[in-house]
């Protein structure tokens, strides 16, 4: 028990992040138009979420050392994604319509409005999902001498999940599912992830790292 399960969790996390990114760009185009800036914003915001999530996730892992507590963050993230079809339209409408009608939107806001909209919807869920890799590296670590290998594996599985997310979202999901159903499914998957974290908690309780070097 351990590394394979951790690989599964970070794979799911990486998968969901990229499905949200790809489908999200499509979703934002309905509000902000099909401009280049929508894609730029979406990619930029998700990268911000990843950087922040790695940073905070690593710190929390040292402090909490329990998988279960991560579930406490995943549940609101999942509920937030589930609720996108309901809360996002009025919020995005407000962002777009705050400019006086009848005159063009200043170029600066043509660029920044989609980033703002993307941040409101996607920043927090993606941030929480990005906590998984550093968190699981900490929980799986048993021997200092193998930290390099372990972290490489965890990050690789997370990225493999992201790769799968990109292609599955772009090639399949957008053609067979409604956007709203995709958000519901991803929100549900995040809740499943939270459930897994609770369920697997005992297996990873309070690990201590051997600092003696390997032979």
């Amino acid at each position: 028990m351990g590394n394979a399960t951790a690989a599964l969790l970070v794979f799911m996390g990486g998968f969901i992040v990229m499905v949200l990114e790809i489908v999200g760009a499509r979703y934002l185009a309905g509000e902000f138009g099909g401009t280049f800036y929508v894609w730029v914003s979406q990619i930029g915001v998700v990268m911000i979420a990843l950087a922040a999530g790695y940073y905070v996730g690593g710190a929390l892992a040292d402090r909490w050392q329990r998988l279960q507590r991560l579930a406490g963050l995943l549940v609101p993230a999942g509920l937030g994604v589930l609720a996108v079809p309901w809360y996002a339209p009025p919020v995005l409408e407000a962002i777009v319509m705050r400019h006086p009608s009848g005159e063009p939107v200043p170029l600066l806001w043509q660029k920044l409005d989609p980033a703002l909209g993307s941040a409101v919807i996607f920043l927090l869920p993606c941030l929480v999902l990005a906590m998984l890799p550093p968190y699981l590296i900490r929980l799986c670590a048993r021997r200092l001498g193998q930290i390099g290998r372990l972290s490489g594996q965890i990050i690789a599985w997370s990225t493999l999940g992201s790769i799968a997310g990109v292609f599955v979202a772009g090639y399949v999901l957008i053609e067979v599912m409604k956007l709203s159903s995709i958000f519901l499914t991803m929100g549900g998957l995040i809740l499943v992830l939270a459930g897994l974290c609770c369920w697997l908690d005992r297996g990873w309780a309070s690990p201590s790292i051997e600092t003696t070097p390997d032979k």
Binding site: F32, G33, G34, V96, M97, S101, G102, P104, V105
Partner: peptide, 26 residues
């Protein structure tokens, strides 16, 4: 001429047109 996304323009415009012609492609 307005440099903007077509849908954004329509959404924020308050004008009325006798004809709207669409020839937008990527």
């Amino acid at each position: 001429i307005f440099i903007e996304d077509g849908r954004q323009f329509l959404r924020r415009s308050q004008d009325r047109y006798g004809a709207i012609l669409l020839d937008a492609y990527t």
